[in-house]
Every structure is written in C-alpha cells, then in structure tokens.
Amino acid sequence: MTDLIKAADALAEEERMERIARTICAEKNAVYGEPPCWKVDGPWPNPDCGDCTCHDLAKAVLSDLNAYRQARENADGVKVKPLVWECEGGWRWKGTPPDGFFASVAKWVWQAPKGGFKHAGTKELFATLEEAKAAAQADYEARIKAALEG
C-alpha cells in the first residue's frame, strides 16, 4: 500500500508542476500578447518556444512551496512561551515575553472607548479582556513561528 501512496503522491506532484508551468507560460506570453505555448497545436512544452524556462520555473516554485510547507509543519510542534501580562495605568495591559527576549515585541491590550477590548496588531473588537489577551497571544505566537527557519 505504501508504494501505491508514493506513486499517487508523485503523480499529484507532477500534475501540480504541470499546472504551475502552464500558468507561468500563460502569464509570460500574455505580456507579449501571444497565446501560451500549450494552446498552440503540437507538443507541450512547445519546441518552437523562444523561452523554454516554464518547467524550470515551475520546479523552482514547487520546490520553494514544499520547503515552505515543511517549515510550517515543523513550526507547528514548536511551543512559544506565553506573554506575561501586567496592568499599566489601570487602563491598558502589557504582555511581555518571558525573560531573555526583547521587550520590543510586547503586545498591548486596552479597553476601547465604546466598550470591549482591542489589541495592537488588529482592529478587531473583543468582548472581554481575556479574549483580547488570547488573540494577542495567538498573534504573538504566529509572528514568532513565522520567523523560524525550518
């Protein structure tokens, strides 16, 4: 069964690369007002095409996409330490990273003038302080994970 799954994955990857190559071809030729090579009668890729790099570009795009997906999967297992919350001035809360991290990545939460709570990084209004803190924590974690290299 494993060989069958591997063969199916390889076929799906090949089809994905083909779709990407055709899209690249269409976009490149559209710049010159010409139809894409694959819409011209004959084999694909078209041997008469003056720029036969579509498949190479598609392979590079697919390789980068796969690397990105792998990095995202690896980052999902990473645990980010929670922010430490403290009230400042009785009206806003500052969530700072644990000791050893830069305070410049602190997240701010405050009570909105017309009710509810907001946090820096979004215009969304949250019903409770805890919801706003949770959203700020999620935003903080997403930014940390996005900066990780796979």
Rank of each mutant, 00 (worst) to 15 (best):
1 M>F: 07
3 D>N: 08
3 D>M: 03
4 L>V: 06
5 I>E: 08
5 I>T: 05
6 K>R: 11
7 A>E: 10
10 A>Q: 05
10 A>T: 08
11 L>T: 10
12 A>Y: 02
12 A>M: 05
13 E>Y: 06
13 E>M: 07
14 E>T: 03
14 E>Y: 02
15 E>H: 06
19 R>G: 03
19 R>Y: 05
20 I>E: 00
20 I>K: 08
21 A>P: 02
21 A>D: 05
21 A>S: 10
22 R>T: 02
23 T>Q: 09
23 T>A: 06
24 I>L: 14
24 I>Y: 09
24 I>H: 08
25 C>D: 15
26 A>S: 12
27 E>L: 04
28 K>L: 09
29 N>M: 10
30 A>R: 08
30 A>P: 03
31 V>E: 14
32 Y>K: 13
38 W>K: 01
39 K>R: 08
40 V>A: 03
41 D>H: 05
41 D>E: 10
41 D>W: 00
41 D>V: 00
41 D>L: 04
42 G>R: 02
44 W>K: 04
46 N>S: 09
49 C>F: 05
49 C>G: 05
50 G>I: 07
51 D>R: 08
52 C>Y: 05
52 C>M: 15
54 C>Y: 11
54 C>L: 03
55 H>E: 15
56 D>H: 11
56 D>Q: 12
56 D>T: 13
58 A>Q: 02
59 K>D: 15
59 K>A: 14
63 S>Y: 05
63 S>G: 13
64 D>L: 15
71 A>T: 09
71 A>E: 07
72 R>C: 11
73 E>T: 08
73 E>A: 14
73 E>P: 08
74 N>C: 04
75 A>D: 03
75 A>S: 12
78 V>E: 01
78 V>K: 04
79 K>N: 06
80 V>T: 04
81 K>L: 01
83 L>M: 09
83 L>F: 11
87 C>M: 13
87 C>A: 10
88 E>C: 00
88 E>K: 15
89 G>P: 00
91 W>A: 14
91 W>L: 11
91 W>G: 07
92 R>Y: 15
92 R>D: 08
94 K>N: 12
94 K>P: 01
94 K>R: 14
94 K>H: 12
94 K>A: 13
95 G>A: 10
97 P>C: 05
99 D>K: 07
99 D>T: 10
99 D>E: 11
100 G>F: 04
100 G>C: 00
101 F>H: 15
101 F>R: 14
102 F>C: 13
103 A>T: 15
103 A>D: 14
103 A>E: 13
105 V>H: 13
105 V>A: 07
106 A>E: 09
107 K>N: 06
108 W>Y: 14
108 W>N: 12
109 V>W: 04
111 Q>S: 10
111 Q>V: 11
111 Q>L: 09
113 P>F: 07
116 G>K: 06
116 G>N: 05
116 G>D: 12
116 G>E: 06
117 F>V: 08
121 G>I: 02
126 F>G: 06
128 T>C: 09
128 T>V: 02
129 L>H: 11
130 E>D: 13
134 A>T: 08
134 A>R: 06
135 A>I: 06
135 A>P: 01
136 A>K: 12
136 A>I: 00
137 Q>L: 12
139 D>P: 05
141 E>Y: 01
145 K>N: 04
145 K>V: 01
145 K>Y: 03
146 A>H: 04
146 A>D: 12
147 A>S: 10
147 A>C: 01
148 L>A: 03
148 L>D: 02
149 E>K: 08
150 G>D: 05
150 G>I: 03
